[in-house]
Write a protein that binds this DNA or RNA. Structure first.
Lengths: 194, 194
DNA sequence: ACGGTTGATGAGACCAAGTCCCATCACTTT
DNA sequence: AAAGTGATGGGACTTGGTCTCATCAACCGT
């Protein structure tokens, strides 16, 4: 495997995040990203299928971790417990470096509709992976849908808190899921007062 | 308000859906859609902001209906009951004509990643509208998130069933939400056997 | 050491989506 | 009849994205 300057992909990611933060997503061209990374447009599109994808690397890895996490849960575990296993399994991908770039990345995504679209699709992909893996365990269609949706909600909330507080993602995500589980179980009661 | 052939927008929608169904989304150009509608590319982009949007018309209307539906629920209603009100309120937009085009529209969307992205964003927008309207009623952040997510799930399931069975969307959506509510309430128990 | 293979890159043509600006035409108003 | 308004047509232009071919660094076997 030949190589010149190593880590072309990482350089592209960093260049893109920098430029998006400095000038905004829409004012940054792919050619410009490639240039700052010491590469060309051609090479950029060899590493990422489009301009957005540079901000969403490593989703395939997460999909696999989710699937394996759900599948690897104890036989006797319920749907939400299997989802919990998925969140724990996914934690290995949430490194310190990822956390460092998290806030800037989130800010850029929030600033642009195309990027929010991509983000929504990624989340839907996670939910789909959870649902499919749950169905594989014999969970009903409806229960799988619900557990997956609640799992993604917990994932999002856990991720946000992890960016703030740091620490072990698994622990944070577990707590988030537990909160969601408790709240969901008492939801159908008419709410107290305010 | 001058007009030549009326309903330019509708003609574009019909032309797009036809062409997408016949040739596939990626093999159809905006210019081609406009041509079949007896218009030009310029005019197309005056009616829709991009190639995808022609398949997602009327979302602003739904957002308003959702917000009003949640806000208009009785003071004493819980979060999920307010969500139910939103689903009922939204039903006025689900006409017979919409139902007729539904299956083809769904098939086209399912066939392409860009379109699934847009769809995911739209759904996220609905969830966001529900959540915000719930918070306006004093529902906690967590409860609002959960209720909105379950509401969207019921919406999707209700929509799918409505396309098959027809009838009043409100009734179908209500039943879907009730199923989701019951299943969610008994979810944390380890599942029975199968 | 040498030539061939491999894999990543560069270069440039090309297409379609999307933006902009200005001219035009149908219809309305005064 | 003249002026105004709103929707449309037309075409130049930018850029995201694809495709093909050439190039160059590293590796590999003899």
């Amino acid at each position: 495997m030949g190589r010149w300057e190593p880590d072309a992909r990482d350089r592209l990611v960093r260049a893109a995040l920098d430029l998006f933060s400095e000038q905004g997503y829409e004012n940054t061209g792919v050619a410009q990203i490639a240039e700052r990374a010491g590469l060309t447009k051609s090479t950029y599109f060899r590493h990422f299928r489009d301009k957005r994808e540079v901000l969403f690397g490593g989703q395939d890895e997460l999909l696999e971790l989710i699937t394996e996490g759900v599948a690897g849960a104890p036989e006797s575990a319920g749907a939400l417990t299997a989802v919990e296993a998925a969140l724990v399994a996914v934690a290995v991908a949430f490194t310190e470096e990822r956390r460092a770039n998290g806030p800037r990345r989130l800010a850029v995504i929030a600033s642009n509709d195309e990027l929010r679209e991509r983000d929504a699709l990624k989340m839907a992909g996670f939910a789909r992976a959870m649902k499919d893996a749950l169905r594989q365990r014999g969970v009903s269609e409806l229960d799988a849908d619900i557990a997956a949706e609640l799992g993604i909600l917990a994932f999002r909330r856990g991720y946000a808190r992890w960016l703030e507080t740091g620490g072990d993602f698994a622990a944070v995500a577990r707590r988030a899921l537990e909160e969601v589980r408790v709240a969901a179980a008492s939801l159908e009661r008419p709410h107290p007062s305010n």
